[in-house]
Amino acid sequence: MKDYAIEVNHVSMLFHLNKERVDNAKEYFIRLVTRKLSYTEFWALKDVSFKVEKGDRVGIMGFNGAGKSTLLKTIAGVLKPTMGSVRVSGVIAPMLELGAGFDMNYSGKENIYLYGATMGFSRKFIEEKYDEIVDFAELGEFIDAPLKSYSSGMKSRLGFAIATAVKPDVLILDEVLSVGDAAFKDKSEQRILDMMEDGVTVLFVSHSTDRVRKICNKAIILTKGQIVANGEVNEICDMYTEMVNSK
């Protein structure tokens, strides 16, 4: 029996789409009485199953609205699937959007502790990594300034530094390799490549077949919430290029 890092078993995700968003009681009751409270059912994922072995780097490709982000969110534990189950073994580092847990009134230093805590790290762990994070984010004396005075590049650098401070078993990347300026971009790519050498399992969402070929060894194509292809990276990337051209 093989050792799997991620097991996705028959995952389906149903969304109720309203024509308009009903978020106040008046609207709700009017619609309830006039029976206009009808939804359009939309399956963002339909019976998706796949397994990722430890150390595999899987590229997830698909057109807009194919369900890539929904799939990542179910694996990260943010969304609970309507049907099916997801099992992840080990520490998972979701980098869906860097800096989502920041507080703008807090200083950089305070945010390191807050963001680390949001990712489920202990205080001791963050203290150990603190210098490394500040160093990597290249914030220098700005670390004590409130975050609202930071540039967006500084924020994402800090977010990236904290998120990758942990040595995760599973890394989820949603096209976030482009962080900061060119120099920092190289540095962050290098860090992710280092992690891969250490045998981290990677899920990488991208539209760029070049990137996927460079980073991944396996790939999946999602179309309308279903897996249409799953296999070796070059084979799948060729298929994807063909799909794009024939569209």
């Binding site: 507080d103 807090y106 305070e110 807050l114």
Partner: peptide
């Protein structure tokens, strides 16, 4: 237990930021 440190951080944050 895993997230009790987050709880502490949030409590401290709420108090700290109230009068900052």
């Amino acid at each position: 237990l895993k997230y009790r440190y987050l709880l502490k951080e949030l409590v401290v944050k709420n108090i700290k930021l109230q009068y900052r």
